[in-house]
């Protein structure tokens, strides 16, 4: 394990060393990502400036949801987005071979080699948005609350990471899977911008039990904002994020190992 820690440090060092060669591109990506996310927030503001609330959630409450989504997405994105985005190419060209002949967990290796620190911007922006919304809301800020928030964010990060991992793993079976990664990751994410209580029951069920994105922000936010439960699910779901995150991640990891075992490499 200690050997993995040293390696992780080295991977980070090498990552920044190679990013230095593409400094301009790195900064552009960083800025562009921040703009994209801010534009999403602007959209929320336009709507709630006009309509005041959506299903009883005010602008700052939706902002709180948004920040949880953003921070956990940033965490998962740093680790998994790059590798899963590149996996399609690695499988198609057979470059993945070299990860399977190293004395390392292939996923750890893949992440170490292709992780994208750019997503750090999401976390920064998310924290700023979180700060603004908390200042404008009446939320108890005890040590217990803050600790639980951190745990929830980690669980939500695992959950988002699991979705990325699972979507990316499809590259082992589909040649062009990038569309899938993008559709699933961005598409499903757009479902949880607003409280899931706005959807028909069947969508709420899907978002809770099938692709449980509701645990990323909606259920835990219900707790922090002391919202009267408005979804069709019982109150204890508010505590489920870390557990759901772990379970989903383990499932995604199983899928990944299954994919690796079925990996066909290439003829040249």
């Amino acid at each position: 394990m200690g050997h993995y820690a040293t390696l992780a440090g080295l991977f980070v060092k090498v990552h920044f060393k190679s990013q230095l060669e593409y400094r301009q591109a790195f900064i552009m990506r960083f800025v562009v990502q921040l703009i994209s996310r801010s534009v999403e927030l602007l959209g929320i503001w336009i709507l709630l400036n006009k309509f005041e609330h959506i299903n009883g959630w005010t602008f700052y409450e939706v902002m709180f949801l948004f920040s949880m989504n953003l921070i956990s997405y940033g965490l998962a994105g740093i680790v998994f987005f790059g590798p899963m985005h590149d996996l399609e190419r690695l499988v198609r060209t057979g470059e993945l071979d070299s990860l399977l002949i190293a004395p390392l967990n292939p996923l750890f290796h893949l992440v170490g080699r292709y992780f994208s620190s750019v997503f750090f911007g999401h976390i920064l922006l998310g924290l700023v948005i979180l700060g603004i919304s908390v200042l404008n809301l009446d939320i108890g800020l005890g040590a217990g609350q803050i600790f639980w928030f951190a745990v929830v964010i980690l669980g939500a990060g695992l959950l988002q990471g699991a979705i990325m991992l699972a979507a990316g793993t499809v590259s082992f079976w589909l040649v062009k899977s990038r569309a899938l990664v993008n559709t699933v990751v961005h598409g499903v994410r757009s479902f949880i911008v607003y409280p899931i209580s706005i959807y028909d029951n069947w969508i709420q069920v899907v978002l809770t039990l099938v692709l449980p994105f509701a645990f990323v922000s909606f259920f835990p936010a219900e707790h922090f904002l002391s919202k009267p439960e408005s979804s069709i699910f019982p109150a204890f779901f508010q505590w489920g994020t870390p557990l759901v995150g772990m379970i989903l991640f383990l499932l995604a990891y199983r899928l990944w190992t299954y994919g690796v075992d079925g990996y066909q490499s290439t003829g040249s």
Binding site: L47, I54, N55, G187, V188, S190, F191, Y194, I198, Y199, D200, I203
Partner: peptide, 12 residues
């Protein structure tokens, strides 16, 4: 899916 999201938002 995007269609569903948008419609649900306006319904709400």
């Amino acid at each position: 899916l995007a269609l569903f999201v948008q419609v649900a938002i306006w319904k709400a």
